[in-house]
Design a protein around this nucleic acid. Sequence first.
DNA 1: GGGACCATGTAAATAGTTACATGATTAA
DNA 2: TTAATCATGTAACTATTTACATGGTCCC
Lengths: 182, 182
Amino acid sequence: MNSKTHIVILGLLSEEPLSGYDIKKLIDIRFRFFWSESYGQIYPTLKKMVNEGLVKALSQTKDNRGKQRYEITSLGRKTLTLWQAQEPEKESLRLELFLKMYFSLGSNPHILINYIKSFQSSHTQDLMILNSFKKELSSIPDPYQNHQNILSVIEFGVKTNTAYLQWCQETLSQLEGSHESR
Amino acid sequence: MNSKTHIVILGLLSEEPLSGYDIKKLIDIRFRFFWSESYGQIYPTLKKMVNEGLVKALSQTKDNRGKQRYEITSLGRKTLTLWQAQEPEKESLRLELFLKMYFSLGSNPHILINYIKSFQSSHTQDLMILNSFKKELSSIPDPYQNHQNILSVIEFGVKTNTAYLQWCQETLSQLEGSHESR
DNA sequence: GGGACCATGTAAATAGTTACATGATTAA
DNA sequence: TTAATCATGTAACTATTTACATGGTCCC
């Protein structure tokens, strides 16, 4: 009954009321380097959570158009606290690129090079997003005194993405070097 | 009809016939830092793949006990080649630790420290496994000339795990430093 | 004889993606 | 006016985990 989707939603709502759409956007930006959710998960989960008493739908105001916002209940906060005390589950990663690379028996190295290049540009962008989030964070007040923890999370993203890009550079120059053909 | 589980299995079988159990072990060791599968995926998938003509069950010999091994068919190889030519899907990661960290409003920092320590020891182990796989690889022949690619994959694991451990050290000393209480 | 690990599997529940549908609003 | 983005949702499918069950073998 507490799927991880429940938890991310509760966590985000613990700071301020949000709509399903807002929640998706926040996950895509702030958590992009270690988490993801789809609309198909978020909207049905929000409805379930209303029934379970974890969140409450706010009444609509004129200024927020069709937007349905939700706020966390005290039961929701309790649930979040209980989750905090439990050992995190073993992380799960799925990077298909490395499957392609591992199994690329004699396939054209140019194909692989292109895959790596798009991996590279996608993580270059991640790094940019992380840096702007970092800057944004330092310009706003820290009422919950959680900025230090958030900065640590960002720092994790910076370090891993930097490692990714380092690997891309090395691997690309190796593949391209070993393949200066014609 | 080609789930990623199909693909990992085909990839592994493209080098040699294996049983479901073998496949699981190989994924757990070689791919642990970027992929995972459970028995509940592997066994039913193998059966499906027999029906689809992608793999063939080998007859049992006396020396391999109850072990049912499978070999890849030519259709299986064709499928693998087709997959190679398709752009890899966006990777998916789920690291619950960072959710805990991001949402740890005023919860006991010792809890967080423990989570990070177990993350640290798990990735210290990953790094050891990677290094021994690397050593093993250099001591065996390279009939398919794919060792360079495999080494690149290993190098990715080394780099990311090293980044993880670097982050653990920094974050732990920060958390412990800011918390020399009593 | 017992514990660790080899070995295969199934059922039930849960999780998650994808494609589709709909309509409003904003900015060029 | 038209494209982008805001905003919510559902249905069908696919994927995945987990718990359970069973029995063999190897080594101490």
